[in-house]
């Protein structure tokens, strides 16, 4: 497959990257792992005149806990960096678990969290769990840095609020009272399959009663979607099978899936019901029973 020609830049600082992007005036794309960008260029879906690579920018792949700030993940951290991170495993194990069910090993060694977010593909696996954990993105531009809730980052399929001269520098997960979180992905194969439905949940629970819950649905709307009615149903209530079922039904109602080659709208809605319950059970640490009846 032919990759059209382009100019290539590999600046050493974020500042330089932003001023290059500004100078190239919308004609350039940021290159991280390239797993999404290069396939699109090969398929001639986009043809940027220039690529600005992040590979020389130091410190962009670190994952660390910073006191007063929270957990900070550099935009160029790969999926396998997330999967293998000790500090993530200790604080937010749902995140490495999500990274591990993405793509395949080769792609996980190249694909980055920043690329997963900025590509803004509705089926992307990391945004739902990150939104469930209240993450923000740190965006560097020619005029400085801005921090935006990830929940407010996406505009539509492949569209976000990031400007052509901005670079996503990192992700911050704030300290929180969350007692458990989980992402449950439904793909058509066990590996290398995009999500047909992905549901992330995070909860603040006291024994069998939920104080607060966040449910974020992936692949069933133009952007990741909070199932706010389902969240409200749960808040302040004791967990029962029927409450979980009610929350699942509510989430199925709230989503706006399309029908495509991976599943019809109706099927996706029912899978949202099932996977919402599974994600909640996992976040609440209730064993999942496979009774065969859409549980």
């Amino acid at each position: 497959m032919y990759l059209p020609d382009f100019d290539y830049y590999a600046p050493e600082t974020l500042k330089e990257a932003c001023s290059l992007l500004a100078r190239l005036n919308g004609g350039a794309s940021v290159l991280a792992g390239g797993t999404d960008l290069l396939s699109h260029m090969k398929n001639e879906l986009i043809s940027p005149k220039a690529l600005v690579s992040l590979r020389r920018i130091k410190g962009l792949d670190t994952i660390a806990y910073v006191a007063e700030k929270g957990l900070v993940i550099g935009a160029r951290a790969t999926h396998n960096d997330l999967a293998g991170s000790q500090v993530l495993r200790e604080r937010y194990p749902a995140l490495p678990e999500t990274a591990r069910v993405m793509a395949n090993n080769q792609i996980r060694n190249r694909g980055t969290i920043g690329g997963n977010i900025v590509s803004a593909v509705p089926s992307a696996d990391l945004p739902p769990i990150l939104i469930a954990l209240g993450a923000s993105v740190v965006i560097e531009g020619p005029n400085g840095t801005r921090t935006v809730l990830l929940e407010q980052f996406f505009v539509g399929p492949r569209r976000s609020i990031i400007a052509a001269d901005e670079v996503l520098a990192g992700i911050v997960i704030p300290d929180q009272a969350t007692t458990g979180s989980a992402y449950c992905k439904f793909g058509l194969r066990r590996s290398g399959a995009l999500a047909v439905v992905g549901v992330a949940a995070s909860v603040v629970a006291d024994g069998a009663s939920v104080t607060q819950a966040r449910i974020v649905l992936g692949a069933v709307a133009p952007t990741p979607l909070r199932a706010r009615q389902a969240e409200t149903l749960l808040a302040g209530n004791a967990v029962t099978e029927s409450l979980l079922e009610e929350a699942g039904r509510s989430a199925a109602n709230e989503c706006r899936p399309i029908s495509d080659i991976r599943g019809s709208e109706e099927y996706r809605r029912d899978m949202v019901r099932v996977f919402t319950k599974r994600a909640l059970r996992k976040a609440l640490n209730i064993p999942i029973q496979h009774t065969g009846e859409g549980t």
Binding site: Y8, G34, L38, S53, N80, N105, R110
Partner: peptide, 13 residues
């Protein structure tokens, strides 16, 4: 030391 798809990596990178 890590497996990658060499069709998805620019030589300059």
């Amino acid at each position: 030391g890590k497996p990658v798809n060499s069709c998805m990596v620019l030589a300059v990178e």
